[in-house]
Amino acid sequence: MSGHTHHDHHDHDHDHPHPTQPDVDGPLTYHQRLEIAVRELMIEKGVLTADEVRRTVEAMDARSPAGGARVVARAWTDPAYKQTLMTDPSRALNQVGVEVGLYKLVVVENTDAVHNLVVCTLCSCYPRAILGLPPDWYKSRAYRSRAVREPRTVMAEFGLEIPDDVAVRVHDSTADMRYLVLPKRPKGTEGWSETRLAGIVTRDTMIGVAEARLP
């Protein structure tokens, strides 16, 4: 396997110049080299193939908050679907063609009396199947440390003020559950289509640091 130059594409030939990978612009960092080393060794040992790595990355790229937004928009417009989502989230996700993944999903609903906020203090557990990869701040020391102890202050830093007559429920994702916040449907969206509604369901509303708003 020596002499090859394209560490992602051992398995097919190129008749065109390989575009420089954006992360290989400067000198590689130690950890970038480590990634190459482990991947190439695993490939040489027949544990995995470059193609499997590529396809796994593609599947990862296909998951985004749009999946969660579809689920929320359907729940806003279809009471029966919402009931399924609250009681059997896996089934509800399957119904809109969102891949469930390995973990069990818990859906927590924001109402006029309750606002939910999700954090993982121990690592950075996140409902990747429906929201894709987490933003950096979700994994940051500040968010992981403070979201459990001063959630209202943390949300205020995101521009979200929760009134005192609304209970804040924090969910620390410590084990095998993953959480989706079902945000409140904003007033003024009566009669909107699911697609249009999905457009105002941002990632942050499904983590709980924002509320869905009219554009």
Partner: peptide
């Protein structure tokens, strides 16, 4: 595995928020 709900005021002696705030932990 359980989800256990705690009153924030019980967990943090200096909790700065309404008594109805809670934290759920698995």
């Amino acid at each position: 595995l359980y989800r256990v709900r705690f009153r924030q005021a019980d967990v943090w002696p200096d909790y700065d928020g309404p008594a109805t705030d809670t934290i759920d932990v698995e």
